[in-house]
Amino acid sequence: MQDAKSGITPMAGTAEGLAANPEMAEDFLQFYRENLDGVYYFLLSRVRDAADAEDLTSQTFLSAYEHQHRLRDRQKFRAWVFTIARNKSVDFFRKRSRQPQADLNEAWFFPDESAGLSPDQQDRLISLASLVSRLSPQEQEYLQLRLIAQLPFAEMARVLRKTEASVKKTYYRILGRLQSQAEEI
């Protein structure tokens, strides 16, 4: 069935309805498989704890599964799921009274030695991590959505509730600033 105005097939049905609609459920699972990494690593980059990231990822997909009937435009599905993920992480920080930013401890700044990096490469990444940690939480969110979640600008704009042009401009401004700082490393 298509929406008469948009021409887009809606994600029809309630959760119960979906359970009785194997095709729709399979669509969701396919979406899940394609986007699990993006959602998980996006959340991990925010909460910095694997168990918490797993919790929030589970909550995100289960919530999306249950409420997908509310979303009529499938083209916006991914942005919608990332919006859920973002909201889950904000709730998480609110409950934990903790902020989505780098904690000042060594482990945050220093990449795992087992990554096989040369000492110079490690130093470079440490410095970059330090630069990123000094960005505001909002600026860090642009990097998380673009670099880690791999969202196109249009979908970032939906998650951040801004225009695509504004998101693109802000992202490249942040990137440019980081790059010029990184040149001094």
Binding site: Y40, Y41, E54, P111, D112, A129, V132, L143, L147, I148
Partner: peptide
């Protein structure tokens, strides 16, 4: 390079199947 600086640890291999 920036992406690598996040030094994100790999996802637990059983997690994806468990959630699915």
């Amino acid at each position: 390079e920036l992406l690598r600086s996040y030094a994100l640890r790999p996802m637990h291999p059983g997690f994806a199947n468990r959630l699915e």
